[in-house]
Amino acid sequence: MLKRIALEEIEKPSYKEYNSVIIKDATQEGITIEKVKQSILNNFSSLNRPVGIEKELVKEVEGFFNTGFYIKTSQNSDIKKPIILDYMANEQNDTLIDYNIIEAEANSKVTIVFDYNSGVKGFHNGITKLIAKEGSTVNVVKIQRLGDEFNDFDSCLVVVGKNATINWSNVVIGSKISAFDVAVYLEQGGGTFTSKSIFLGVDSQKYDMAYKVYHQAPKTTSSVDLKGALKGSAKATFIGNIDIKKGAKKAKAEENETVLLLDKTVRSIAIPALYCAEDDVQANHSASAGQIDEDKLYYVMSRGFSLEEARLLMVQAILNPVIDLIPYDPVREIIIKGHIGRRIIK
């Protein structure tokens, strides 16, 4: 298999405190949020399963996390306002090692946004574990818009209970090197995992993105959709595993990756694997890559846009549907107007 991240190339920072996280709308009925500590983590031994990009990175978080939260919803609660975890980086707080646990009790509903942002140079390594109990609905948006000189790693574990629904989004636009790994266990009947994610890589950014979906129970459904654009000498690796285990009868799995290639010097690697040990299933994956349709560009330019503007429009057409899912207006505006525009039009 392809080697994912060359860890030896990454400068590991020495341990440092991190104190610049802000949580918006933390006090709402039906939800408790507290700082994560070892005694809490000890209660979640059921979540000790293979996770993450590299063992080394996972160990580092487990041993040296300097921030992170334990978020718990109460049964049947409907958390109206999204919880925004604003993990901001700056010169003093450039080493961010977070360990987050989300426990959604039965039939609760919640939306949680992780916004890793700002800073110039630094290091982020995190673990997020989500356990969604029977009938719960959890929406998670993970935004990574850290500074251009950041190394970013994010290992996520999602355990989907009976008839629970997870809607997941990764928005990856920052850092020099950025890797995430989302392992999803659909371990009880009727569980659903839907991911709609995007990335935009420019200059010499390197991205490594993986979704590993394990269908272990009947009538589980998964859908992974990743769209992105690459410019300059950016490189993106996408690993998408659908693994349908024996017993997952009537499982439905879908996976799709679309990459827009904007320069000759980009590199795109996709490995959409499909493992199937059950016959009564519907599983398919697809991947495509190519340039912007010239006819479309021509049309837009004939309406008075410059080539760069036209290209920006095309990229936005791919990325915006996911950005629109971010339930927090200020961040959405910044991403659309600031990050994406600035990166496409230089």
């Binding site: 010097t265 590199r267 599983a283 190519g290 340039q291």
Partner: peptide, 16 residues
């Protein structure tokens, strides 16, 4: 699928 060029037209599909 490993692509080192932009001027390409690539499609992959699989189903079981």
């Amino acid at each position: 699928i490993d692509i080192e060029n932009d001027n390409v037209d690539i499609g992959h599909e699989a189903k079981v």
